[in-house]
Design a protein around this nucleic acid. Structure first.
Lengths: 231, 231
DNA sequence: CAAAACTGCGAACGACGTTTGCAGTTTAGA
DNA sequence: TCTAAACTGCAAACGTCGTTCGCAGTTTTG
């Protein structure tokens, strides 16, 4: 048997990432489905019922086929997750040719990123896998670098700033998703400061501009034109 | 059959968190193992081979028993993960009675937290579940509030700051763990700014003090005594 | 001393990701 | 044109997982 996702001319080389693997060869009947079909169905499932509902069997059932058939198009579930991620990152397009303060531009990126995470909460469960970035993710990264281009600071600092910004966005997306998972039913006698803090206000409502302020202070600190390195 | 982890006098009430559930009743033979034994074995397994290696069967085998037997002590694998997490959070003790700048105190907490994440990398895979905080986690939280006590700012701001600090620590722990997962084998022609950035320095080595600077700017911004709210 | 409440244990259940074998279909090359 | 290679879908199976269940034995309760 052969596997369409392995790549025809690939003997024993290391597994290539899904992005560069060909869809199929030239022979044989026309496939009933496509990678894009499968990814679309999987995303719909994840949006509706969470990432745990995205099982090979469930996706296949949505498409009216069997679980094993999906392996004609993908080589693993991780591949599917990679494709799903990159697909929805594509929703961050179009990238407006913003001319203005780089910091404002980055905040715009962050806001759109946060909206994306709220539109597809399963991204939080998928983002932390050490997987190669797909073309859309690379394009987004590239756009961030374009925004930061006017800044005269080390490239390493820009990479760090983008990574940290994405991280902070996921933090906000996560705390927004699991808002107030509940304080414990333990007795608070052992935690005096916590008890005092909880007795004070009825609800610790987050301030509205926290997102912007956090990111602004973070990026300002990371993108200083000259690393301070004192002494 | 009965289940020791359900709680004897619990009829149909909602499932209590593991922390408040009794270990066992008074009748019957003395148990061969204990919750602590199981947690210790599971942590050792996770430290050595990662969280994926912590299966009920593997933990049970380590203890010389069968997978089903663990359910005499725990009601689910999630319970085990909760217990593991809280146990290692206990390694953050003792909390020194530091008298000094609250910001310095928080940075100290962050450093110890980062060290904990590097000692138990599987914490990164377990931390983002919406699960109740255990007693050790609550104690740590309480200590953060103690450190922040001298600050005269809204309690909500303190909660936010602690949460964000923890989040940033996980970000650094994660990027340190998956350091340089590799740039893609795609052609970079479609990403001009990325290509330009990569052509510039051979290696984008992170600056050493990034952790401290990031947290300092973040906490300073979040813990301002008066929210700036302009206009 | 019987009943209740516990113990360990092994088998089983259902779901999962993935592999495999097979029958049928399309193309490539002689 | 015809054979062989390369593909197609599909159902069954494999191994692993978390979890449940039933049973035999042990200890406490009243």
């Amino acid at each position: 048997m052969t596997d369409a996702t392995t790549g025809s001319a690939d003997g024993g080389a290391a597994r290539q990432p899904i992005w560069t693997r060909p869809h199929r060869g030239t022979r044989g009947p026309a496939p009933t489905h496509s990678r894009d079909d499968i990814v679309t169905a999987a995303i719909a499932l994840a949006d509706a019922e969470g990432l745990a509902a995205v099982s090979m069997r469930a996706v296949a059932t949505t498409l009216g086929t069997g679980a094993g058939s999906l392996y004609r198009y993908l080589s693993s579930r991780d591949d599917l997750l990679d494709l799903m991620t990159d697909r929805v990152v594509g929703e961050l397009r179009p990238y407006p040719t913003a001319d203005g303060d780089p910091l404002d531009g980055m905040l715009r990126q962050a806001r759109r990123q946060l909206a994306l995470y709220q539109r597809h909460p399963w991204l939080l469960d998928v983002a932390h896998r050490p997987s190669g970035m797909g073309p859309e993710t690379l394009a987004w990264f590239d756009d961030c670098l374009r925004i930061l281009a006017p800044l005269r600071c080390p490239v390493a600092a820009k990479f760090e700033a983008i990574a940290m910004m994405t991280g902070v966005v996921t933090l906000f997306a996560r705390t927004a998703a699991t808002a107030a998972t509940g304080l414990p039913a333990l007795d608070l006698a052992a935690y005096p400061h916590l008890a005092a803090a909880l007795a004070q206000p009825p609800v610790p409502a987050p301030r509205a501009d926290l997102f912007e302020r956090t990111l602004r202070s973070l990026l300002t600190g990371l993108l200083a034109p000259d690393p301070p390195t004192p002494t």
